[in-house]
Design a protein around this nucleic acid. Sequence first.
DNA 1: TTGTATGCGTTATCAC
DNA 2: GTGATAACGCATACAA
Lengths: 332, 332
Amino acid sequence: MATIYEVSKLAGVSLATVSRVINNTAQVREATRVKVEAAMQELGYRPNSVAQSLASNRSNSIGILVSELSGPFYGELLARIEEEFRTVGKHVIIAAGHSDAELERESIEFLRSRNCDALILHVESVSDNYLRGLADGGCDFVLINRYVRAIADRCITLDNRQGGYLATHHMLELGHRDIAYVSGPMWKNDAKERYAGHLEALAEFGVAENKTLFFEGDFQETGGVRGLQHLLGTDVPFSALVCANDEMASGAITAAHDIPLDLPQQLSVIGFDNVNFAHYTYPKLTTVDYPIAEIGQMAARWVLKNVYHQPVKELQDVFEPRVIERDSTQKI
Amino acid sequence: MATIYEVSKLAGVSLATVSRVINNTAQVREATRVKVEAAMQELGYRPNSVAQSLASNRSNSIGILVSELSGPFYGELLARIEEEFRTVGKHVIIAAGHSDAELERESIEFLRSRNCDALILHVESVSDNYLRGLADGGCDFVLINRYVRAIADRCITLDNRQGGYLATHHMLELGHRDIAYVSGPMWKNDAKERYAGHLEALAEFGVAENKTLFFEGDFQETGGVRGLQHLLGTDVPFSALVCANDEMASGAITAAHDIPLDLPQQLSVIGFDNVNFAHYTYPKLTTVDYPIAEIGQMAARWVLKNVYHQPVKELQDVFEPRVIERDSTQKI
DNA sequence: TTGTATGCGTTATCAC
DNA sequence: GTGATAACGCATACAA
């Protein structure tokens, strides 16, 4: 790779001048600019962004940390973030934290050491305190899908409690009263919140919680399968099933077909997230929309505004879920 | 962030010695190593990998370029690659090429300018010539899902033709003779190859190709929907539908339910890729397995071996597809 | 075993 | 406008 030095030699100017035309950072006489550009062209010069980064303490790259790289949820998030940055010449460095506290910390340190200008974090295991410390340490980052009071201005969240409320509320409005619930891992905040919303809806309709109709799954498909099987095994009747995410709902639907159970006649099922395979299920899954792509976009804009100081349209920090009614739920 | 210089001062040794204990690149007396480590600990020192990269011309990072960040296919690929590298302390920088030639080139240049030690490319639009030039230019990269003769030793592929053959062969063996085909964009190599395999199987069974039973889709769900609707509209009867990927198969299944058509009694459907939502469909989708995760793993190992010169288990460069029989196909 | 000195490719602060 | 020149944080020959 040609260096800036070779370009300067070929163009008969100094390093500094070449740097100026590259970065458009000062006035350069038109004639010399042309000379330099010709030289760059001829040598096929591309700036070495590592050196740029070291010298300028700016990398034009943003670190993204998500729990998983696979799965419909994170894929959409990443895609939107990348898109948003690509259009303004920034780039993303991606790492996975796998819901493991140490790995999350390590990945954050890695991204910082890569001189990322900012971080977009979707972390579940690291403590609030750690995040507060990060912020105090002068690290620019936004937090997705998590609320930490001390750094509320960098949190972009979905109202999970409200989502849980809406899901169960939907069932209640359809006339269901015996409602089973398959939760995510209760140590995860979103799982807890969604469940809280569920209870709130039940309370509002004066329905008592039946603890035997609760199953703690793993946010995976198998969790839904095991969940439905377990619930059916309790012999406590129920006409509706609320699942804390779409993967588990799909698992439950699959398990129901295997029984077989007629859906939605014998059992109404609702999911959460509205991931892109939700309409592959049969019947098509009614679910609660999680506007993950928009959240990603908003996170990107937060960075554009607060770190790169670019003018951006208004920022939104809390998103509201809503029920997407399809075919897996019906009146009792 | 503390620098190596501050560490050396605190530990009372030179820069070089600190560097040595960091990289374990030469013998250091135990006592001084301890001193240095204590100093690093105390300062919370983390090496600046940008500076490391500039100085050593090695970044311990691998650039990955895929067509899309979303979708089950690439997600699994990325996840496996990241995992494989993470365990050996390497990191990935990810970019999306969006099947656009210019964007692909740009992304490759970006990754190179980031001083990536190697690239793993899944590109569809850039020319063979360009890739050959890249290789000649001394860029270390592996090519996934594409075969370029001149650089055959860096290609890791699935035998798409064989996969297409197997899919249709499966239908033929079940007794189907009127077989419709929904293809991917024919400018894409894998779409072309899969279709070639389809024709080969037909020929083997002495079945003439019926061009009215061919539809060129877009590898997306909607392509499958439109495909089935179009094919049904031709009024040429068919009992089996071969789709060039699972997304389109899912779309076709959805469309079939809407008709409604009984699956698989009235129509057998087979997909291709075996993405993770294939068993969410109803009936569960019979498909051709594309071991994308293994291919990702192999690409990572190629890099480990050829670029980092680490000992790795044997490398495999061409993978064989196989039919995964589930519930969406049956004997006629 | 440890220290010194130089270079990696840029940016940025001075002068001119 | 333009050109020296000092950082940036680290690796690495070469000395000691």
